[in-house]
Amino acid sequence: MKKKWAFLSSMLAFVLVLAGCEPLMVLDPKGPQAAQQASDIMLSIGIMSFIVIAVLTILVVILFKYRASNQPDDYEPPHIEGNKWVEALCIGIPVLIVAFLSFMSVKSNYIVESAPVGYENEEPLVVYASSSNWKWHFSYPEEGIETVNYLYIPTDRPLEFKLYSFGPITSFWIPQLGGQKYAMADMVTTLHLGADEPGEYVGRNANFSGKGFAENTFNVTAMSQTEFDEWVQEVHEKAEPLTEEKFDELLEPGHLGQMTFTGTHLEFSPAPEHTHNDVSEEGNDSEEESDHSGH
């Protein structure tokens, strides 16, 4: 047994050294939503380590104490059916832990599903993020801008991403700003994020979507509101307008670099009309939903 634990602990040390070079992305949050999730994760890791260590300790003690070589040859173990109190304890403690974690989980659910705390009085920036094989299209309807595979965002302002897809289910994920959410063909999902610090972050599609999935990434640059406004200004001066033909071309499967356009595809190819609530209410509306499915 000893060999095993020695080995395991050396492994653990090795892993920690490796991991110690740089903080893990999810645990290095740069926005309120990601911070909430990181603190949930750390809390659960703490409680869970306690459980694992407890089980491990009991196991090691029992194995050591009751191994056959440690006992007389004529020892005959007793018949034990069970004990009310022990069982109550075995149920009670996990119930308490689970109840506590459930409470934490429910609380966090409502936090990450609403606008980030800290800058509630700011108007949210709405970005339509739609995926096609294997690219991301970011439409800023209020600014009248569309980018491909990169995202500029202001810091200290709520971000509201409206997600949908021109193809397979994808998942919009910027680990340092917050967890992911699916983008699907027939409805729009909403993801609330926020960035506290200016900087470059990586974003990607996290849900397998075929051959080009691994490279289906995008860059996120967070900057102050003034810089963001300057960028919007600059795009309007320099970029080409996005036409329907051009957009259809962009939808062709493949990889593109970063691109910038004025105007958004929402003007000629609006986002799906369903949201999750319509569907669960079983909308009897028979509107044509296929005109923006892109194939």
Partner: peptide
């Protein structure tokens, strides 16, 4: 069926 009942696309209800 209940999920798809209302999703008639361009077809009849």
């Amino acid at each position: 069926y209940f999920t798809l009942e209302g999703r008639t696309g361009a077809g009849p209800t």
